[in-house]
Design a protein around this nucleic acid. Structure first.
Lengths: 172, 172
DNA sequence: ACAATTTATCTTCCGTGTCAGATATTGTCC
DNA sequence: GGACAATATCTGACACGGAAGATAAATTGT
């Protein structure tokens, strides 16, 4: 039998403690939504922190990696417009401009005027950019695999299903 | 019968498309970890965007709300040190300083020197801060409830369970 | 053909957070 | 008690992205 100091939250996780605190302070509210959203938010933060070092090692920020990866998986000739990059990576066009600027100065992409439409640009992986991202993706996936290792395959699949389901109900 | 252009990804969601692209471009890799982590990351972004307006309406950023909420659920006298706030909200001490500065100029908290330890400070909700957060929390929870409405209660519970389980395997 | 509108991208300013170091206070060990 | 380390917070420089507007080019209607 275990002794517990008053106010001890036992073996609750961080979010569990938050829920318990709210239930105590505002019994009129139902804080249970935080059980899902809070944990998801917190987990996203932890995962970001765990994934970042792989990019940082190459002198890249998360956003820069995202651009390289998007170009790479687009397939040959590894070339997209800033608009396509913005839509795919879900950031503003201004952010894409800056990401491409950084990657340009690293020599990983080149920016050319599009033939058909002089307003448009083509961002294309350079050979050096292709080499870099092909290496990084492998290590990134190994890293993600490591982070998922604690979850049984069935749980992984169930989690993916629920996240996809929820996402679909949110944005169509 | 539906016609589909070559390369059409059908009814896959955004992350599903990404997985399909990687499988095509790098068949030597197993991109399935992205099915979970990518969806989680994307969902976190969508949720942030949906939750932010409630705080923004009160002139607060997410971080400011987080500080007020942490103080509120700590219970009377609604008072914590910057260090405790930093640990709970998982940001650096510098971030806490700035958040508190903003909340100070809004009159929602006060910063006082701690009696026991002159290095330490006490951040305490003002009456106006207490009123504000007590109102905001209700609306925030209603908003979270709305975002979860598309998910059946059983799915919600299962999702919370999996997220908590995963979080526990990650940080101890 | 020309003006008005739309589209694609870039630019500027600003808000927020991190990081490394500065400052002030407390604790420790002879 | 005094030197040295540890602790709690703040400061300043920087990085990154968002929002709104600027620029340039294509499209549309007449």
């Amino acid at each position: 039998m275990t002794q517990r100091a008053p106010g001890d939250d036992g073996d609750l996780d961080h979010v569990g403690r938050i829920l318990a605190q709210w239930r105590h302070e505002r019994p009129d509210l139902d804080p249970s939504p935080m059980g899902v959203i809070g944990r998801l938010h917190r987990l996203a933060g932890v995962l970001d922190a765990e994934l970042r070092p792989v990019f940082a090692e190459a002198g890249l920020g998360d956003g820069d990696f995202d651009v390289l990866a998007t170009l790479r998986r687009a397939g040959e000739p590894y070339e997209l417009t800033p608009g396509e990059l913005a839509a795919t990576t879900m950031v503003t066009s201004g952010a894409v401009t800056k990401r491409v600027d950084r990657l340009l100065s690293g020599g990983y992409v080149e920016r050319r005027v599009c033939g058909d439409d002089a307003r448009s640009r083509r961002i294309r992986l350079t050979p050096s950019g292709l080499t870099l991202i092909d290496d990084l993706v492998g290590r990134h996936l190994a890293n993600e695999h490591r982070l998922l290792a604690g979850l049984a395959p069935a749980d992984r699949a169930e989690l993916a299903r629920l996240l996809e389901l929820w996402g679909r109900t949110l944005d169509g």
